[in-house]
């Protein structure tokens, strides 16, 4: 009897872990799960992309494929945009070449800095940072706050507080490299960054936070009302590096991914897609102020 209970619990545990890691719910092929509503804000997200290796090109090719059905206008980059050396050849091989088709089609890229990025990237025009470590971008009813989590000093925190409190956007979305919450085995949560930044994000009504750094995909259950996405596997990958916890809403750690997002009114629709075109996560979120 005891043995059968143990086996039952074990099986339930395995099933829960498999569900969190997303394995049984993958779908193959370019099946779009976004509503394509008129006048919606459409964009893609990539993280830890700048390797210049074949998987980065393959993810980029999937982005091109999906863009035929979901014409997004811009891409947010979660940092580690250029790994290794930073010669002009590296900028070409690790950014310009993989995303050439998207860039030729007029898709703009907005970057933040990761720990592998150096300050020369601030002035690299295709990253649209205009020499700034942190900046905002307002599109429709959405305001994006790009932060430099490598160097979260008091002036940046003061700036963010001013920007967030002055923002009237329905959707406030922060993106930066280091995750405040992560169940990756290699890095995990950045606790000191969380201690300083989270109170400000909570107080100012931030709805969604997008991060990289961990070379897996993870969607964390809302923490103090904020939805956290970690997508740090658009070029790099640490296979089987996710240690799902009860706070993991969804995870995927066996291939590279990118994300597609459509914001229409008070709906944040997302679809996370693997290098092979499989959908590994999708859903709809609502802004914090309206879900209360």
């Amino acid at each position: 009897m005891k043995r059968s209970v143990f086996i039952l619990l074990l099986l339930r545990g395995i099933a829960a872990a498999a569900k969190a890691l997303g394995a049984p719910q993958q779908t193959i092929g370019p099946a779009l799960k976004l509503p394509l509503k008129p006048n919606s804000v459409r964009f893609a997200i990539i993280g830890d992309s700048g390797t210049g290796e074949p998987p980065q090109f393959e993810v980029a090719q999937q982005m091109v494929t999906f863009r035929k059905d979901f014409p997004f206008d811009f891409v947010l980059m979660m940092g580690d945009n250029i790994y290794g050396s930073k010669t002009p050849r590296d900028f070409k091989r690790k950014f310009e070449d993989p995303y050439q088709t998207l860039r030729s089609a007029g898709v703009k890229f907005y970057a933040c800095l990761g720990n592998h990025d150096h300050t020369e990237e601030l002035l690299y025009k295709p990253f649209n940072m205009n020499g700034q470590h942190y900046y905002t971008l307002k599109i429709g009813n959405v305001e994006f706050f790009a932060l430099d989590s490598n160097y979260m000093d008091p002036p940046q925190l003061d700036w963010l507080e001013r920007q967030l409190s002055g923002s009237g956007a329905v959707w406030k979305i922060c993106f930066f490299h280091h995750p405040l919450y992560s169940h990756g085995k290699f890095h995990g949560s950045d606790l000191d960054l969380r201690a300083r930044l989270e109170p400000l994000l909570v107080k100012s009504g931030v709805d969604v936070v997008l991060n990289g750094h961990e070379h897996v995909y993870e969607r964390v259950k809302p923490q103090q009302g904020i939805n956290y996405f970690i997508l740090g596997n658009s070029g790099e990958l640490r296979p089987h590096n996710l240690n799902p916890s009860p706070d993991t809403e969804k995870g995927f750690d066996t291939d590279r991914t990118f994300g597609l997002i459509e914001i229409a009114g008070d709906e944040f629709n997302f679809q996370i897609i693997s290098r092979t075109g499989a959908t590994v996560d999708s859903g709809v979120l609502r802004p914090r102020q309206k879900s209360k």
């Binding site: 720990n115 150096h118 490598n150 979260m152 000191d192 300083r196």
Partner: peptide, 17 residues
């Protein structure tokens, strides 16, 4: 020069404060 191929370790915000 800080080598371009070596990551810049993030400086904890509490230290910067």
């Amino acid at each position: 020069a800080y080598p371009s191929d070596i990551p810049l370790q993030s400086t904890p915000p509490t230290i910067l404060m």
